[in-house]
Write a protein that binds this DNA or RNA. Sequence first.
DNA 1: TTAAAAATGATAGTATTACTATTATTTAAA
DNA 2: TTTAAATAATAGTAATACTATCATTTTTAA
Lengths: 224, 224
Amino acid sequence: MKLHLQIQMNEALYLRNPELSELGKKIIMHSVQLIYNYGFEAFTFKKLAEDVGTTEASVYRYFENKHKLLVYLTSWYWGWLEFQIGFHTNNIEDAEVKLKKVIRLLASTVEDDEKTNYVNESLLHQIVISEGSKAYLTKHVSEDNKQHFFKPYKDLCAVIGMMISEYSPNYKYPKSLASTIIEMAHFQNFFMRNLPALTDFGNSKEDTEVVLFLNDLVFSTIRM
Amino acid sequence: MKLHLQIQMNEALYLRNPELSELGKKIIMHSVQLIYNYGFEAFTFKKLAEDVGTTEASVYRYFENKHKLLVYLTSWYWGWLEFQIGFHTNNIEDAEVKLKKVIRLLASTVEDDEKTNYVNESLLHQIVISEGSKAYLTKHVSEDNKQHFFKPYKDLCAVIGMMISEYSPNYKYPKSLASTIIEMAHFQNFFMRNLPALTDFGNSKEDTEVVLFLNDLVFSTIRM
DNA sequence: TTAAAAATGATAGTATTACTATTATTTAAA
DNA sequence: TTTAAATAATAGTAATACTATCATTTTTAA
């Protein structure tokens, strides 16, 4: 039996739900590939339309602009990751084991998930590393926030924050530590590959090094 | 006596050195103000030219494009900050005291520096918080890196990494911890103001909270 | 099964952005 | 004071980020 996983998305992110049509799914599929290839700045709806084999106008019927598409894709990723975390930490009681699983899920190379047919999680993970912060580092972050565009990110942060508090109920900064883990899982990976002088893993370039760094950071901080 | 401070800049960042003419200095001054007002995406050389009271063509004689201008501004900031750190930790032996000074310098509101006449460090600090990572989160980060565009950032990271190693010679990740401190000083500040659910300082919105968080993080990690 | 509705394709058009080029004029240096 | 360098004024181009219109195809619902 083949299971299918659907991530619940904020309706204000799109004009037409891309999950409900072939064209919509193609737009998602190809946008992941193209943003990965070109980077977000050089990515355009014109290129996307050509790649999909449709017109620019049709793409605009799904997404108002490329910023909302980026927010859509990153939100999808955070939602998917929260599901992964729930799945992999299910039935585990030990908060330390759970947190270590979370760090590994955040900082390891993602393999394509069979349960989602039109999203390549591996590429999407790379996009979230290189482009993810551009979703909120904007002048209109507060308006976007009012429309709950960042809820999946916040939810994930809350989940991790709760695990931290479970492990160490007196620790004063569970949410800030959670957002630090999330951001650093990605930034240390980006630095390792592109600006290795900013890390201590320039030689090996292994994801596992980032995992070890974060484990050490988190547990020396919250271990009383 | 009024002292003047000059930051040595990478020549590949500009076509004409903006420090050596009135127009160049105006371009720097006004670009800081405009990027602060509009955000980097909505900032254009046309708006800049109008604001300065010159033509677009003249701005292009100084900077090839707005990306290089952003790298110029952030580099300037990192250079300036490294000078600040050198100045404020001079003659201090205790590595703990030095690191705490560094964290405070990184995570506190910056006041305008009298020693530099045409750069508003306070606004530039806000720009580095909101736009700084866009300087390296690009598809061409490696080419930019080959031209040493990120040297000031790396130098700062190295300085902080050395302080960490001085305090704790056996700690395995001094450079990664240094880049974590730098990034989190800014991200936690941004989150606190714009996405407070990602932090534990949403109520107070005080810089000092970020300082306390980072002090706790760093010293519980490197204290043996 | 068919008519209406919805989605898509084809095409065109606009304002803005990100530049480059040219020539005249002003300012600075030898 | 002559010459060179910098700037201003103006024009122009290709690409981007859209919006609009209308014909055609596909889907849905009566």
